[in-house]
Amino acid sequence: MAAGFALDYDRVIAVAAERAGGKAFWYFRAGGAVAVDTINDAKTHMAARRLFESGLRLSPEMLLAPQFDLLRHVRADAATVS
């Protein structure tokens, strides 16, 4: 499944999913996430949709940080808007 628009990206980062066999391929342009393709990873797909709909920024450094939690990141942004 895809979310966002993977056009003119300059970096791709593959991230293993919590679910065995799952993977997400994140596409970045100018240091910000622009799209993600997921395989057997519905949790990341849905969180990414929320991320892109909100306009929230996600950098490669954030994504690769050992304790980073995408769903928590998206939820924290939603809480500040409410």
Score class of each variant (00 low, 15 high):
T80P: 05
A14H: 10
V15I: 15
R50V: 09
A65S: 15
F25H: 10
M1V: 06
Y27M: 00
T44F: 04
L56C: 09
A17I: 03
A24D: 04
D37I: 08
Y27F: 07
D77K: 13
F52K: 02
F52M: 06
M46C: 10
A2I: 06
M62S: 14
F52N: 01
E61C: 12
M46P: 01
A78I: 05
A20W: 07
A65E: 13
M1G: 06
Y9T: 07
T44L: 08
D77R: 11
A48D: 07
M62G: 08
F28M: 07
R75D: 14
T44Q: 10
F28E: 09
F5G: 06
A79W: 09
F5S: 11
R50F: 06
E18N: 09
D37T: 09
D77W: 09
R11L: 15
V81I: 11
L51P: 02
V36A: 00
W26G: 00
H73A: 07
A79K: 15
L63H: 08
P66M: 09
A16R: 12
G4L: 01
A2K: 04
L56K: 14
T44P: 05
F28L: 10
V36G: 00
D8L: 13
A14R: 08
P66L: 04
R75H: 12
R29P: 08
F28S: 10
L51D: 04
D41L: 03
L63W: 06
P66Q: 13
M46H: 14
D8P: 05
G4E: 03
V15S: 06
A14G: 07
V12F: 01
K43W: 03
A78Q: 15
A76Q: 15
S54M: 10
A17Q: 03
D41T: 01
D69I: 08
F5H: 13
R11A: 14
T80R: 15
I39D: 02
R29D: 03
A33P: 03
F25L: 12
L63I: 09
P60R: 11
A35T: 02
M62Y: 09
F28I: 04
L7W: 04
T44I: 05
T38R: 02
A47E: 05
A79V: 07
N40T: 15
A30M: 08
G32Y: 09
V34Y: 01
G31W: 12
D41Y: 06
A33C: 14
L56Y: 08
S82Y: 00
S59G: 07
A42R: 11
A6N: 02
H73L: 06
A24T: 05
A2R: 04
R57M: 13
